[in-house]
């Protein structure tokens, strides 16, 4: 067993070149890093690096343009689908995606999201749902679960006074403009690989001008949930998945 396996011909996995070498600012164990990499690998495997334009949101992933080695722009809070609409209409041959969190997509940008999806813009929307406003300190978001504690619902979300969580992905799936709507996660190797397959499918549909593709990724927020990364992944399986079940919601016939 003294044989050295570390040789180029034995390489089976390395960081994709669509991600830059910059150290990500995300907290240890955050799902954003894995979600970034799955999207980058999907772009890489389809050979789309030179013709992809991404739109970064406001939220934890506001600096996504530092990490993807593709053309990126930044949108005002929640307006990424509107910006992506403009880019896609000016450059219909480019692959355009937005990458948004739940505060950006399901709160501030609900109108832009719903109208872009309803118009059936040929863009990919990647939606990271961790049920909380991570960047600003773990406040309650529209996607916070009933009874879930956050810094602005310290005794848990009381539905009677704070309203119901918004299942925006199910809502989006009802719209005629959407073509492929799915919910995935990236906390285990199997789930991460499934997410990459879904993202690749969505990028391929965009090439065929099929309409809006919407991929939700249920993610953890160890800092906002006040848990270790491994605990937060377990908590997510036990609490988030019953409310936000994984799987395809709208698939092409």
């Amino acid at each position: 067993m003294a044989e050295n396996l570390i040789k180029p011909e034995n390489l089976v996995y390395e960081k994709t070149k669509v991600l830059t070498d910059r150290v990500m600012h995300y907290c240890p164990g955050c799902g954003h890093g894995t979600a970034h990499r799955m999207l980058a690998e999907a772009i890489d495997e389809l050979g789309l690096q030179g013709e992809t334009i991404g739109v970064a949101p406001v939220g934890c992933s506001v600096l996504a343009y530092y990490y993807f080695d593709v053309d990126m722009t930044e949108a005002a809070h929640g307006r990424a689908p509107a910006v992506a609409t403009g880019i896609k209409r000016v450059f219909p041959e480019k692959t355009v995606f937005t990458y948004q969190g739940d505060g950006d997509l399901a709160a501030i940008g609900t109108a832009e999201t719903i109208h872009a999806c309803n118009r059936g813009e040929n863009i990919l929307i990647v939606f990271i749902n961790n049920g909380i406003y991570g960047m600003t300190g773990g406040q309650m978001a529209p996607t916070t679960l009933p009874g879930m504690k956050s810094s602005t619902s310290p005794r848990g979300r009381d539905v009677a006074t704070m309203g119901n969580p918004l299942k925006i992905t199910e809502l989006i799936a009802q719209l005629p403009g959407t073509y492929f709507v799915t919910r995935q996660s990236v906390h285990t190797p199997g789930n991460a690989r499934k997410t990459k397959r879904a993202l690749k499918k969505a990028l391929e549909y965009q090439k065929l001008n099929k309409g809006t593709c919407f991929v939700e990724i249920v993610a953890n927020c160890p800092s906002g949930w006040k848990m270790t990364p491994v605990q937060s992944n377990k908590w997510m399986e036990e609490n988030m998945f019953p409310f936000y079940p994984l799987g395809d919601i709208k698939v092409p016939e």
Partner: peptide
């Protein structure tokens, strides 16, 4: 595959 910071290379 699960590493959020892409620090692992596998042979």
């Amino acid at each position: 595959v699960v590493c959020p910071d892409a620090v692992i290379t596998v042979y």
